[in-house]
Structures are given as C-alpha cells and as structure tokens.
Design a protein around this nucleic acid. Structure first.
Length: 574
RNA sequence: GCGGCUGUAGUAUAGUCUGGUUAGUACUUGGGCCUUCCAAGCCUACAGCCUGGGUUCAAAUCCCAGCAGCCGCACCA
C-alpha cells in the first residue's frame, strides 16, 4: 500500500512525526517535522495566493479561545454535545438519545439529561448489549472546554472551526468593505475537536489547521462575475440524487450543472472550481478527486447546500478534504439574535423603487364624535396597517375593526378617506448569505504526500532498482535545489559551498550534502522531492560549469555558474 | 469509550512461550579511507527492550495498571 510506504518515508525524512513521542504520544495530534512544516507553509502560501491575491479576499486572525456565548449562538454548544451513558455491567458506552429513541420511538431532540434519565427509569431502558442497568447520563462535548481568567468562572472553548471568528467581526468587516456586497474574508488557523476515537492518523486530528473563506453575498444574487470564464470547465459531480438512486458520479460542465439545477448557484460552482484548481496546482490530480453533494441527513446544522471535495486514498477510502457550503444567513442571524447587534448590510437599489401605497386618512371630526379620547390612539394605530386591506374590508363588510389594548373599535366608511401615494424606497437592510469553502489543510497535506509519492522500478544491470520519492511540484517542494561536490577533494567542496550560499541568498531553499557517494546523494535528494540537483565536478575547475540534474527525468545538463540563478528561476517558472 | 491483537536502536527484525553472561543481526545515520555522476567497498562510532508498579536472588521475558498502534463496535454537525 502506498500509504504505509509514504508514512514510513515521511517519518524517516522529517515530514510527519507523532506528537509528544517521548511521553509515549497522544492520539489525535501530529507534529510536522522540518520538511513537513516547510511543505505545509508552501501549501498555505499557495492557498493565500489564490484566495487573497487572485480573488481579492482579505485575511483576518482571531483567537482560538472562544467565550461560551459565541458557541451557544453558533449552535455548537447545543449540537456538539452528545448525551452518553455507560452500562453498569458490561461497561459499554452508548449515545443515550439513540438508545432511548430506539426503545420508546419518541423523538427526544432537545431533551435535557435529567429528562432522558427519567425516561430511562419510566420506560425501563436497559443496556442494548446485556440488558443491565445504565448509569446516569453525562455529556460528551466534542469541544475542548477551558476557563477564561483567574476566577475560572467564564467558560470558554477552543474553537471547533475558524469560521466563527469571521462572523463575530462582521460589523467591522462590513464597514471595512464599505458595506458593499459581495466581499470575502479568510482565516487560516488551528481548530480543535475532542474526537472520541481519533484513529486515522492525520485524517482525524484533535488539533488541526483549517483554511476557511467566508464569502458574504446578497441573498438574491448568487451569480459570480467570473462564472462565464469557467462555464465550460468540466466537473465530476456526485449529486445527492445520484447517490440515493445508486448511480455513479456524472461528468458535466459548470453551465450544465447550473442549468440542470444540480448545483444551486454560480458562486458554489465557481468555488468548487477554485478548490479544484488549488488542489491541482499543489499536485493533487483530478483522477483522485470527487465532488460529492451532502445528503439531506448529513448536512450540518447550519447548511443549505453542501458539497465536499473528496480524496481517494488506498487506506481510508474517500476522505473529505474540503467542504463548500451555502450557510445561508444562519450564522449572522444567530449572532444577531444572541448579541442584540444588527448584523446586516444596507443595500441601495440601483434605482429607487416606487412602491404604491394606500394611505388611510382619518376624518378626525368624525373620529372625535365617535371615539372621543381614543381618537388619537386609533388614528396612530391606523398608520401602521395596510391601507389596501382596510379599504377592501370596508367595501366588503362595511366595517373595519381594529383592536387596541384589547378594545375593539369599529370604523365605518364615513370615518375616513383613502389616498394613493407613490413612495420612494432607496434600499433595504439585508442579512447577507455566506458561501463557505472550508479546507482541512492537514488532510490536504496527507493527500499531497500520498499522491506525490512515486515508486518507480527500473531495470539496471539486470537488477530491479526501486526509486521511492516525493514528486512534489516546484511550488510546494520544501527544498528547491541540492548542491553536491562530486568528491571531497580538489576544492570541489569549497566551490559547492559557495554555490549553496549564493543560491540561498537568491531565495532558494538549498541542501548541501557531501557524504557518501554521489549516487547515494542523488537518491537521498530525490526521496525528499528536491526538483534539481547541482553537482560540482573536476571540469568545473576548468570551465566554470556545473552539472544540473532533473529529479524526474534524471537528465543532466551543463550550466555556467554565473547563469545558474537564472537557469533555476527559468526552471521553476514553468 | 468498550473488546481483541501488538509494542526490542531511525527502520526491519532475533531473543519472550520455558526468567539467568556484555540483548544479536541487517539496513540507515555520523566520522575516516577510498571514490570522476545515480543507494559500491573497507574501518569506526552513535543508538534499543513503550511507561509505571508488582512477583523473584534475578524480568525484554511472568503479573497488574497506564500510554500508543492495528482490527472490530460505538462516535465523527
């Protein structure tokens, strides 16, 4: 299996290491070794290039420690907590709500633990395994809880996603963007989930890195200005319908996906395109990717429509690496409600709208006669009712009743008149919808390592020689150039060290290696995916040229030392 | 979190059942010799019994607990 070999070499050469290893490790955490950290930075740099430079989004950074109110509003405190229960005999642990629902056929959504416990007693719910008594319910929350401040009375959590930080800043962000939709904000950072059983290495971590973009759009305008450019791009889409019908994923263009209502809107398709582009550019090819729509029952508590980019792995099957969701106005509405802050954008219409309005004009003379002290109150109340409705009712039944402070007042047609007015409305307050592409960087690194890993067998002198190496693209490769002296004598090492130093000053990451034979050093530099190797040999002493060797083709060429920089730059810009 | 299996240098392993010399081997890595382009050879060095407790004159070996890995169950918005 490629996975095992890749993990092995990744460990040997300093990409991924188990965390806290000298204390025997903790499941659900991973260390990035020197090359792993460089690789991850390069991948994140590439991500920033696409989303910040190309798309014009802006990056923010918010704290990982998050006060409880935020996560109550977002629904994480409620939805992230599962009531658990343990059998007193066989010690097996269960989701209490699941076994109660099974036994009673009640829907117990939103029940407190106490209510669930009393249901257990009333309905005689027992351990599904051994029919023994169950413990009391306790909560297992997938979030890491902590206390903020010395008194320890302000509960907080490590954020379970980076997205909330952006929503919280919405008011200021909206001002920053001059209150103009659409705008996009990104955050790259750590998120935390206290997984019950994190067992799939880097695929299921308790602390992981997300790169998320929140794109705030007008709810009625989910078109994208650049959609035209990608309308003919081809996607392999695995829609919810195909999945439930037991059909295969289908290949179609962006335009077809839109026309056939498979993807809800242009922005979603555009974001799917961008995600794919990002993956392709860092070296994950289309043939190991699939774009799958969430089934209605697996949709997150906030999502309207949701697509995952999934990665094919030999060990774990299809793994979600990117989620692209239309979150609607769920988050902003929720935070608005809980914080009592208005989280909306005033959008001006292109042209003011003229709204025809029926205005009720009370005849205060008649009112006075009829309603006395209440006249003013009634006239005031009439201002906020729909004039058209009053008119219709008067015409049909001859009387319009209005209730004020639980008194009913009867108004007849002689008591008022109507006037039709054209009102000019210049705009409205709207709560933006959010389209969210959310990247699991660690899973993407895993996919990148897995699918960059190449094992090539070549026949040499009748023997099979295996070349195992990471075939990184130039962009993400941690080390760009290796520099070797052919042998350790005749000033070759000195010249090679000079070249190494000057290439480093030119901005390349360079490894210098002089130990063992040249072949061994080529093999070692191949293994960690260094695209180019420069060798100083005896001819260099005469002609001032070095040998430049290509990792993939193993072809060699001679380049003058003073032209080395531009040669390498040329190589990497292709 | 539950159950089963497993844990010896960086890697792969011998030794564990049946307790008893200085824990052996190969590769890797560092240094040296040699070496004129794809993991050659020779010399040399570093490095290991998952952690903690117990039994015993004596524990890598037997027992208990913990931790980690793999597999199954449960969980995974």
């Amino acid at each position: 299996m490629n996975h095992d070999k890749m993990i092995n070499i990744g460990r040997k050469r300093g990409f991924l290491w188990p965390s806290f290893e000298i204390y025997s490790g903790v499941a659900g955490f991973t260390d990035y070794g020197p090359l792993g950290a460089m690789l991850k930075n390069n991948v994140m740099q590439k991500w920033r290039e696409i989303y910040i430079v190309n798309e014009g989004f802006y990056e923010i950074e918010s704290p990982a420690v998050t006060p409880e109110e935020v996560l109550i509003a977002s629904g994480h405190v409620g939805n992230f907590t599962d009531p658990m229960v343990q059998c007193l005999e066989c010690k097996d642990v269960f989701r209490l709500d699941h076994i109660v629902e099974e036994k009673t056929n009640l829907s117990v959504d939103g029940y407190t633990n106490e209510e669930l416990d009393s249901l257990v007693l009333e309905r005689n719910v027992k351990c599904p395994n051994c029919e023994s008594r169950l413990s009391e319910a306790w909560n297992f929350n997938l979030m890491f809880r902590t206390n903020i401040g010395p008194k320890g009375n302000k509960p907080g959590y490590m954020r379970p996603e980076t997205a909330q930080g952006i929503f919280i800043m919405f008011k200021r962000l909206s001002r920053f963007f001059k209150n103009k939709l659409p705008f996009g904000v990104v955050q790259l950072g750590k998120a935390y989930r206290n997984e019950i059983s994190p067992r799939q290495g880097v695929i299921r971590l308790r602390e992981f890195t997300q790169a998320e973009a929140e794109i705030f759009v007008h709810p009625k305008d989910k078109t994208h200005p650049k959609f035209k450019e990608i309308a003919n791009e081809v996607f392999v889409l695995y829609s919810a319908k195909s999945q439930s019908d037991g059909e295969e994923a289908i290949t179609l263009t962006g335009q077809e996906a839109l026309d056939n209502n498979i993807v809800a809107n242009e922005i979603l398709i555009y974001e799917i395109y961008l995600a794919k582009k990002f993956l392709n550019e860092i070296g994950i090819p289309d043939n190991v990717l699939r774009i799958r729509q969430h089934l209605p029952n697996e949709m997150a508590h906030y999502a309207n429509d949701s697509w995952d980019v999934e990665l094919k792995t030999d060990k774990y099957g299809w793994v979600e690496i990117i989620g692209i969701a239309d979150r609607g106005d769920y988050d902003l509405s929720a935070h608005s409600k809980h914080s009592n802050e208005e989280l909306s954008v005033y959008t001006e219409y292109d042209e003011p709208k003229i709204i025809k309005k029926m205005v009720v004009k009370p005849d205060m003379k008649e009112f006075g006669k009829k309603f006395r002290k209440d006249s003013v109150k009634i006239a005031e109340a009439l201002k906020s009712v729909d004039g058209l409705k009053v008119k219709e009712e008067l015409e049909s039944s001859g009387v319009y009743e209005i209730a004020i402070d639980s008194h009913n007042f009867k108004i007849e047609s002689g008591d008022l008149s109507f006037e039709e007015l054209d009102e000019e409305v210049k705009g409205e307050k709207i709560i933006p919808h959010v389209i969210e592409p959310s990247f699991g960087i660690d899973r993407i690194i895993y996919g990148l390592l897995l699918h960059s890993f190449s094992s090539v067998t070549v026949k040499e002198d009748g023997k099979d020689k295996i070349k195992d190496y990471f075939k990184f693209t130039s962009d993400v490769s941690p080390i760009k150039v290796a520099v070797f002296p052919l042998v350790k004598k005749s000033r070759l090492p000195e010249i090679a060290i000079d070249i190494k130093d000057s290439l480093r000053l030119d901005g390349f990451t360079v490894e210098y290696d002089s130990s063992g034979t040249i072949g061994k050093r080529y093999a070692r530099s191949d293994e960690i995916g260094i695209p180019l190797a420069v060798t100083v040999d005896f001819e260099t002493l005469d002609d001032n040229c070095v040998t430049v060797r290509n990792r993939d083709s193993e072809k060699q060429g001679r380049v003058k030392i003073e032209e080395l920089k531009s040669y390498i730059e040329g190589f990497f810009s292709n």
